[in-house]
Each structure stands twice: as C-alpha cells, then as structure tokens.
Design a protein around this nucleic acid. Structure first.
Lengths: 220, 220
DNA sequence: AGGTTCCGTGATACCTTCTAACGAAAGCGT
DNA sequence: ACGCTTTCGTTAGAAGGTATCACGGAACCT
C-alpha cells in the first residue's frame, strides 16, 4: 500500500474529498439502507451544493459501485489478514460473522438483494474471487477430507466443473465443503441480520456455531 | 375462500383496480426490482394520471407492504397445498425452490435485504409464522429424529427457548432440523438467485439437492 | 330522479438525479 | 512573480418521483 498515486496537491485533495463522500455514504447506508442513499443529502451534510459531488463521482450508481468495491476489499482484507495470522476455517467463520455484524448493510450491499440489471465490474468480481480463494484454501488446509458418501452426485458433478476464473483446481470434496461453508453461513447470517429470527427467542450465534461445527466435521 | 367481502359494485370495482395495480407492480418489480417501483409509472401504464392510484393505496410504502403480504400468502399457500397433498420435507424443499425460481424478486421481497426502519405489520408476520409452522410440521413428521450428538449446546439451548409466537412446542431436534433446513436452503437459494454462482460453472440445483440430502439424514 | 359518495384530473409543493454554463480559486510553468 | 490553464463549486434548469389538495363529473343508492 505504498502510494495511492496521489502526488499533486490537487489529486491529494480530490482523493480526500472522495473518501469523505464515501464516509458520509456509509453513514447513510448504515442507517437507512442503500436504496435510500442520496447524493444531494451527502452534499448538504458536507456543506456543499448538490451538483458539486458530480465532480467526484459520475453519479449515484458509480458511487454505490465504489462502495461495493470497498466492501469487498474490506472483507477480503479482513479474511486475508486472519488467514495470514494462522486462522483456520473456524477462525475465518468467526471473522466473517464479526465483519457482517459490524455493519449489516455493508454485508447486504454485497450479498443482499441484487439489482436485476446490474453487472459488477471486472475488478470487483476479482476481489470477490479473492474472498473465495481464501475460504477455499482454508477448506483445503482443514482436513484429510474423508471421502464422501458413496452416493454423492454433486461431488462427481464438481469433478467435471471444478474451478472457476483461473483458479488452481481443488479436489471436489474441498470445493463441496467450501460451497457448504459459504451457503450455510450466509443462510444463517443473512436471516439473522435481516431480523427473521427476532421473536423466535433463540440466540442466532449458537445456531451459527452449530452449523460451523457440522461444517468442520470430517463428513459435513 | 368464499367471499372476499366485495358485495357492492363499487367495492368490486375497487378490488379489481387494486389487483390490477398490484399486477403492474409485480411486473415492474420482476424486471427492475422493488427499489425501482414507481407509482407514477404504474398509473401511466394503466392509462391513469399519477395521483389516481392514491385512491387505492395510501402510498408507495403501503403498496409494497401489500405486495409483501401477498408474497407471503402465496408462499404459505403453495407450501400448504403441497403439504396437504402429502408432500414430505423433501417435497416442500422442491416446492420452495420452484416458488423462488419462478420470481426471484418476489423471493427477495420477503427474504432479501431489509429496510432498516421497516417493521412488518402483525398479519404479515402471522403469515410468515404459517410458513414456519408448515415446515416445522414437516420436520416433525419426517423421522424418528435420532438423538443429537452428545455435544449439542444448541439443542439444549433450544430446549429452553423453543417455540415462538404461541406455537405448539416441538422437540429441540425438530426445531434444530427446521432451522438448518431453512437457513441452508435459503443460503443456496439466495446466492443462486443473486447470481453469485454464475461463472463458477456448476449447477446450483445439484448443490441444493446435496444440501437437501444432508438435511434428510438422521443426523443432519 | 335526487342526493351522496367516490373517482379521476390538474395544480402544486417538495424531493430526487443529473446536465449545462458561469465565476472563482487554485496549481503550474515560465 | 505573473499569467495560463485546469479544476472546483455555484446557480439554473430539465425530467421524474412522491404525495396533497380542490374541483368536476360519473356512478351508485335511495
């Protein structure tokens, strides 16, 4: 993270204002959701007039895209740092949960309801792949990966279709565990963050833990 | 479902227009998402002027709330009908998946990104509970429910906190299976519908099937 | 057939995104 | 240090959104 490419004072100022805009945007998203994000409201809170922000972002969509990119970057860095410090799959699961609970709307910005027409830009999906790779690696490093049950059509399916986006091929059991890890934890997390467990009177953290426990077993 | 309470021609007309409005709203949601739903656009497509629709819905929020209610109603009826025809837990899982695939945005309207401030009205949550109950019943009817592993802190936790909203108490193993069923299938479905599996080159249906298979096992 | 109720309209206020044109400020090169 | 150039922030305005209001007309009910 040497230089962010801001040498001239103009570029330094520009980058600073961009960050300030994004900070206000995150504030607004955290309290009212991404759909309520208003360029005008951000400008007013910064003491500027509406169109001023269009010097820094082409429009609302580009601002949100940038926020999505930053969210992915934050998740990839958080998981990557934990993995670098020796966290195993269980550790990454807890890091993921903490990251999601810290800012639910940030989590939903990534894994929430998609906008039908939207296509994430290339570099954003690259960061998403980085997240995947960290988790796949943790799955690969986890266990001897006991052979799956005889009847495992999905594993044989993965055998032919494993790997994506120039990824180093992983054994189908590893990929299967990764997919189960991802989808199960996302299932618990997203329903918890959306408040679908409120009123049921149990602690979602324990359900998360129980699911994680099952994921770590030789046969998950 | 005898009479919907529309006796006078006025009420019949009113109900009909309301349904037409909602039909256009669903159309719009399916193609552009709920956040892009526009009362004005619906009015114009119906050959009406903007404010006309405010005779039928207090505002955009009430219209969306009504759509959420209808979505829950549709899901509850679909699952309930399948259960009444003898579908077991696996059958309900497939019915759920078909229902979700038929209109992803309808699924996300229920289980997608929540609006931070929003609280669903009483009757809507009642329908949501109806969905839960159908699934819990199917879980209860499924198996002898082999005792869980010795180390099952979540099951003992459920023992003290089981049941919600005036529900007949179910054994903790049943509740645990229900929660795993719900969260795991939602995890696969929501990520699939959001397009997070595109480019990975495997068939989500098989992952769904594999997860379902695990859910049906004596020890899931 | 008369009276009342309801429907749809246009006008209006206020919000939003976003473009265009202008003035001012700041950096850059000489 | 001065001038040129680039950039910034502004106001004005178009286009579209939600939502309220008052009014004319149609439909219903008695």
């Amino acid at each position: 993270m040497a230089g962010t490419g801001a040498d001239t004072p103009r570029e330094r100022y520009r980058a600073q204002v961009r960050e300030e805009i994004k900070a206000h945007a995150w504030d607004q998203i955290a309290t009212a959701g991404a759909s309520a994000l208003s360029v005008n409201a951000i400008a007013k809170r910064m003491g500027l007039s509406g169109p001023a922000l269009y010097r820094y972002f082409a429009g609302r969509d580009e601002l949100i895209t940038e926020l999505v990119r930053d969210a992915y970057r934050s998740l990839a860095d958080t998981l990557g740092a934990a993995a670098a410090e020796g966290a195993d799959l269980a550790g990454l699961a807890h890091v993921l949960r903490e990251w999601a609970l810290a800012d639910p709307q940030r989590y939903f910005l990534i894994y929430g309801t998609p906008v039908p027409g939207y296509r994430a830009p290339e570099d954003t999906t690259a960061i998403a792949d980085e997240v995947m790779r960290t988790l796949v690696d943790a799955c690969a490093a986890l266990a001897p990966a006991g052979p799956e049950t005889p009847q495992a059509p999905f594993a044989t399916h993965l055998l032919g279709h494993r790997g994506w986006a120039g990824d180093q091929p992983a054994p189908p059991e590893v990929l299967h565990r990764f997919l189960a890890f991802w989808t199960r934890l996302h299932g618990v997390l997203s329903l918890e963050l959306a408040g679908h467990f409120t009123g049921m009177g149990f602690r979602p953290a324990l359900l998360f833990e129980a699911e994680l426990e099952g994921l770590l077993a030789p046969r998950f």
